[in-house]
Amino acid sequence: MDFRRIEGLPPYVFTIIDSLKLEARRAGRDVVDLGFGNPDLPSPEIAVEKLAEAARNTRNHRYSSSRGIPNLRLAVANHYNRRFGVTLDPEREVLTTIGAKEGFSHLMWVLLQAGDAAIVPAPSYPIHIWGPYFAGADARQVPIGDGTDGAGYIDRVMEAWELGWPKPRVIVLSFPHNPTTSTVELEDLQRLVDWARERDVVLVHDLAYADMCFDGWEPPSLMQCEGGKEVGVELYSMTKSYSMAGWRVAFLVGRQDVIKALIQLKSYLDYGTFQPIQIAATVTLNEATEYPAELSGIYQSRRDALYDGLHRVGWDILKPKGTMFAWARIPEPYREMDSIEFARHLVTECDVAVSPGVGFGPGGEGYVRFALIENEQRISQAVRNIRRGLTRLVTG
């Protein structure tokens, strides 16, 4: 039988490193896992308490609504007003999704079909590349740079749209960016919005790391731009901001006709997230308002431990301004290796697991991604292991 929807999908390269990690641990080795971006910090206690309370109410065991319960959508609108100074209509401009990945995938279904095209970053979070593909469309990858060039990406996107044919219907953005940690300022998003208002194109901004930001820098929202709600939609997730990865609670906000279209599609596909989870998410958004900043401080300390430690052993990397990752070019003495070979070397010789850059598309080759999912002590241990195992590094 042919499985045409998944024909052409490459092997999920992250499983290669995961298998090596598990093999090493079975052999009794202590591998520091900085690979999969799975938050290790607990969800807010208030979320857990409210979930347990709501789950005991049998009325919450019935089907919910695929668009999200009204109080949760109102909480999202209030959160955007506090966080970004943006006014959203919870009835027409907010939709709950079962995590950002589900929301993005099904959003591509309503925006794209066979013969259409989307512009996506290269490298990119895998679903940003493959979401358009699953919708039968083409994903045209535009280089995002090495993590310092968000404004340049905006310029390259506009150029790619003008030169491309057929004209892409969708432009995918994600700042701060996974995996490169690239950032953008509000004035650059505004330039793109102004440009998009003159063209038949929808901007889709995945703001997964809205609250994971360092050194006083704050990520902008597409909704803060004048005209942003006219040309685009934005995904906001509780996964990273509130360390609620397994809860699968995210939101699509913005352009009303796009929100309405996805509501219609989802009415055929699902009944929404389990209602006690939605109730807990509502209370968390309303009452745990300081939690994202607390998490951000923890991740900044971890970033500093990794950045400073690698610098000391002779591996200079970019210092991220946001996300829970660090994007590192393979050090010069090892650049004869591709990213899978180098990641394998880190597991087998250094007892450190990272993600190979090629797992984020061809544009990620030559890099690896560190996830800040261990505490400072374990990160320091990883640096010591790297110093011991990367014998060709020039150390100070």
Rank of each mutant, 00 (worst) to 15 (best):
E226Q: 08
Y307R: 05
G297T: 10
V358C: 07
A75K: 09
R5F: 11
C350Q: 04
L235D: 00
D351P: 02
E218Y: 06
Y80P: 03
W195S: 10
W130D: 15
D89G: 05
A305G: 07
A54K: 02
S267I: 11
A75I: 08
T284H: 00
G103F: 08
L95D: 01
P331H: 12
W217R: 10
S355L: 08
P121K: 04
E53R: 03
E23S: 05
D18Q: 13
D18G: 05
A250P: 09
S221H: 00
G150K: 04
P70Y: 01
N375A: 03
V204R: 05
V170W: 01
H79M: 10
Y209F: 15
D200L: 05
L235T: 04
N375G: 09
T15P: 00
G145S: 12
D33T: 02
I330N: 03
R73D: 09
E93V: 08
I127R: 08
E218K: 15
E287T: 04
S65Q: 08
Q381Y: 11
L390P: 00
R4L: 15
P126F: 01
G396M: 08
D206Y: 04
V13S: 02
P10G: 07
R26M: 06
D18N: 12
R303Q: 08
Y271P: 06
G8P: 04
D211W: 09
L186G: 07
R329M: 10
P179H: 02
P143A: 15
D155I: 10
G357A: 01
P356F: 01
V283E: 12
H106A: 06
G150P: 15
G227N: 03
A305V: 07
L107Y: 05
V172F: 01
Q264L: 11
A135M: 08
P42H: 00
Q381F: 05
G359L: 05
S65C: 08
G297F: 00
A27R: 13
A281W: 10
F84Y: 11
E185V: 13
T15Y: 10
F325C: 09
I119G: 03
I279M: 03
E198H: 05
P10S: 06
E218T: 11
K229S: 14
I277A: 03
Y63K: 06
G314W: 03
G297S: 01
E159F: 04
V258S: 10
P44T: 14
F84C: 11
V253C: 00
T183A: 09
Y209E: 13
P42D: 10
E365S: 04
Y80F: 11
R387L: 09
E365T: 03
A122V: 01
D308Y: 06
E365W: 00
E198L: 05
N57H: 06
M238I: 13
A328Y: 07
R344M: 04
G322E: 05
P132L: 09
